[in-house]
């Protein structure tokens, strides 16, 4: 039986999770890695993808993160995410609509800056959709 450890997920706007969990799988830039209690101190960048969290009561939840950093130290695991969304809150229709909007933004973009911003957003959304489909 896995022992619980402290897990924190923070985005610039708020603290999303702060609780003891059994296991977390983090999408690191160099590959996914699972974190259990007493993991070696590690610092890694996070690529856009899903983190999956095994809670102490046995149920599992998934969150989509857009990127950021994971810091494992003896106090536990901290993920500094640029943006994080609970998968349960993502709806396929909303996502499709957002992608449509982003595509329109891209088409309407007047200069390089706007085009770049729209393209980044579109990429993120498409990544999210792709990742969802692979669940």
């Amino acid at each position: 039986m896995a022992e619980p450890f402290q897990f924190e997920l923070v985005s610039p706007e708020r603290l999303l999770i702060s609780e003891a969990v059994n296991e977390v799988v983090v999408p690191g830039t160099d590959g996914d890695f699972g974190v259990l209690k007493d993991h070696a101190p590690t610092m890694s960048t996070v690529r856009p993808g899903f983190i999956s969290v095994k809670h102490t009561d046995g149920h599992e939840s998934r969150l989509y993160v857009v990127g950021g950093f994971a810091d494992v130290n003896p106090n536990g695991l901290t993920i500094l995410a640029e943006e994080a969304i609970d998968v349960a809150d993502i709806k396929a229709e909303d996502l499709a609509e957002q992608i449509r909007n982003a595509e329109e933004d891209f088409a309407d973009a007047k200069d390089d800056d706007q085009r770049l911003a729209a393209a980044t957003k579109l990429d993120n959304l498409k990544n999210m959709k792709g990742a969802l489909a692979n669940l």
Partner: peptide, 18 residues
């Protein structure tokens, strides 16, 4: 700063890039 209890940080990809 966290006391690492003698352990050394692993960096992925590496310190510089992070």
């Amino acid at each position: 700063t966290v006391d690492l209890q003698g352990a050394i940080y692993e960096y992925e990809p590496d310190e510089g890039e992070i």
